[in-house]
Design a protein around this nucleic acid. Structure first.
Length: 487
RNA sequence: GGUCGCGUGGCCGAGUGGUUAGGCAGAGGUCUGCAAAACCUUGUACAGCAGUUCGAAUCUGCUCGCGACCUCCA
């Protein structure tokens, strides 16, 4: 088992040696989507990031239990601007059952994740499926004196909790500052303190999604679902909790408070947070009205997109940046990633063309070691990819005959690509659907072109190539005859 | 306003005290009937100012610019 993986822990803000609580088992919880709308490019970041984490840990031999929730209860507007949740509002607009809406977007989300080649989590619990667990948890918190009921709603008493616990440690908040700096908003009056947050919210009569509870009909607060589901499936203390940096406060901070109140233990050993995707330097988010849905990303149709991009290009684009850095979106950057990825994939394909040499002029072991080193350093996929480009260069040179690779080198090169590009980074070859008819037609076209070339009738051969190019079919002449590929 | 973070060559992006990151684009070359691909060569980069140091993009301070969280958000 690898003993040199370092992970940046948001809790300590340092890179820490990864030592699972109960090796080789690893428990990982990742905050999943609220399925009240379509997934956008911003959503792709955490799921690709933690897919990378999951894949690498699995590659190292850990047995990972990967839990990623679906928030299908919707969140009410916490500070009481409106006491309706998002699912409710949307369901009314679309004149359908809330669960119908939730199902629709869950399905769509799954489709998008599949296209991005994100492994499905081992357990994907839903908030609505764990109302009982959430209510039980709230009861315990009340029993411990850290929550209070007002008019059918239950609030967590942050001030009281903070007396004996370090509320704010994860996000670097100081509770007095928070109270002093908080704004006066309607609906806050039920709370004893501005810093308190809701565990259970009373449902107004028009609210469709509602459940009976000891405090009357209502629905769970924003943070309790993650505490309840993580505890249920991973225990009171588990290894890794992941999510976007924007969830640090108040979501994850509150999650710690809830879980710790119930179990008496810190719930998570390593907190991991991915950074945001920006567009024109600004975070991509609903409130900025600058989101590009994944569907638009893949198939085109958004005004900021020149065209659609293959899901693998999006995945590669995300992985070319370290997960803790912001990633700036642009067509230019995306096209650079597209070409780069194609270069890697082509290099891998061309390995078979290498003639094995008796003596080697290349050093592949260093590349393998450097790939591991990069991944061990807080999952630095950007550096891992840089090493793969070096490997691509070596393979291409071997095809050209300027480097020599032995049979063993060739096997190693394939193995390194397979391990890192395909297994760990989760890239899969971009396959264009090409029918058998098309194969046959192209065979005919190329043989006609070849005949023209034999007769040095280049105007005909070039015409064939140019016309095919217009259809998105690239013809390339090589030593061994012409090849073609579809864009 | 409070807390935190960022500013790297045309673009995207690693790096963190001395040695080439990498990709894309651009320029020149090799190969080719031509192209494409591939290979080789090529870039006064580290917001500004001051300081620490033999040496700073990397540490410290200040200034400027940008962003995130504090309200649903990945």
């Amino acid at each position: 088992m690898n003993k040199s993986l370092y992970i940046t822990n948001t809790l300590s803000k340092k890179k820490e040696l990864f030592e699972p609580l109960n090796s080789p088992f690893v428990g990982m919880y990742v905050c999943g989507p609220t399925v009240s709308g379509e997934s956008h490019l911003g959503h792709a970041r955490p799921y690709v990031t933690f897919d990378l984490v999951y894949r690498y840990l699995t590659h190292l031999g850990y047995k990972v239990r990967y839990v990623r929730n679906i928030t299908d209860a919707g969140h009410f507007e916490e500070e009481g601007r409106e006491s309706e949740d998002k699912v409710n509002i949307k369901a009314k607009l679309e004149r359908i059952e809330p669960m119908e809406l939730v199902q629709k977007y869950t399905n769509l989300y799954h489709d998008m994740m599949d296209l991005l080649n994100c492994e499905r989590p081992g357990i994907e619990p839903t908030a609505t499926g764990h109302i009982v667990e959430q209510i039980e948890m709230i009861k315990i918190i009340i029993a411990k004196g850290l929550a209070y009921e007002v008019n059918g709603s239950v609030y967590f008493d942050v001030t009281r909790y903070a007396k004996d616990n370090d509320y704010g440690k994860l996000s670097g908040r100081v509770i007095d500052d928070m109270i002093a700096g908080s704004r006066e908003l309607d609906g806050q009056n039920e709370k004893r303190n501005a810093a308190d947050f809701a565990l259970w919210k009373k449902a107004p009569p028009e609210h469709i999604m509602r459940w009976p509870s000891p405090w009357g009909d209502g629905f769970p607060g924003w943070h309790i679902e993650c505490s309840a589901m993580a505890t249920k499936y991973l225990g009171a203390t588990f290894d890794i909790h992941g999510g976007g940096m924007d969830l640090l406060f108040p979501h994850h901070e509150s999650e710690i408070a809830q879980s710790k109140t119930v179990s008496g233990k810190n719930p998570v050993k390593y907190w991991m947070h991915n950074n945001m995707i920006t567009i024109n330097g600004r975070k991509m988010g609903k409130s900025y009205n600058n989101t590009i849905t994944l569907r638009e990303m893949f198939f085109g149709g958004h005004q900021l997109l020149e065209r659609g991009y293959d899901p693998m290009v999006i995945r590669f684009f995300i992985l070319q940046t370290h997960y803790r850095s912001t990633l700036d979106f642009s067509n230019e950057a995306l096209q650079a990633s597209e070409k780069g990825l194609q270069r890697l994939l082509n290099a891998f394909e061309s390995i078979d063309k290498i003639t094995p040499a008796t003596e080697s002029s290349v050093e592949l072991e260093k590349i393998r070691t450097d790939c591991y080193k990069a991944m061990d350093d807080d999952f630095n996929s950007a550096i891992c990819i840089a090493n793969l480009f070096e490997l691509a260069r070596i393979c291409n040179s071997a095809v050209d005959g300027t480097e020599s690779m032995t049979k063993e080198d060739i096997d190693n090169a394939k193995e390194i690509f397979d391990t890192f590009l395909y297994q760990v980074l989760g890239i899969k070859a971009i396959k264009k659907d090409v029918s058998g008819d098309m194969e046959s037609l192209m065979k005919i076209m190329l043989s006609i072109r070849d005949e023209a070339k034999q007769k040095r009738d280049f105007s005909t051969s070039d015409k064939i190539r140019d016309e095919l190019q217009k259809l998105g079919i690239a013809v390339k002449d090589t030593k061994d005859g012409a090849t073609w590929s579809k864009n």
